[in-house]
Design a protein around this nucleic acid. Structure first.
Length: 97
DNA sequence: TAGCTGACGCAAA
DNA sequence: ATTTGCGCCAGCT
């Protein structure tokens, strides 16, 4: 439970439907603001649908990678009502500037 | 045990 | 504003 992995998973499970959280935020909540990379590694290792790992995105608003493929991740987010816009590079979370 | 990799982030050019 | 490089933490080989 005290493991970083457990904490990260716990935080991700906290994310509500239609809401997204950045790796940075997750890492910060987990207690290691600089461990954004480690967070990604853990999420990738966790294939359980119990954890909405698809709701974790980059701090820039970009979708990032996903164990099932970024495409799938985008589709899932869209299905949850997350507004996104198509960019030259792919999809990004619709965010007011 | 030591080194490399990676679902990232930020700073500098 | 965009592109490139470096840093960071935890896990895996």
């Amino acid at each position: 439970m005290n493991n970083f992995e457990e904490r990260v998973l716990r935080v991700v499970k906290t994310i509500s439907k239609g809401r997204v959280l950045t790796y940075k935020e997750v890492a910060r909540r987990a207690g290691s603001p600089k461990a954004s990379r480690a967070v990604g590694n853990i999420l990738k290792k966790n294939y359980s649908a119990s954890t909405p790992c698809h709701r974790v995105i980059h701090s820039d608003g970009t979708i990032g990678e996903y164990n099932r493929g970024a495409k799938k991740k985008i589709m899932m987010l869209r299905g949850e009502g997350v507004k996104m816009v198509k960019n030259n590079n792919g999809y990004v979370i619709h965010k007011a500037e």
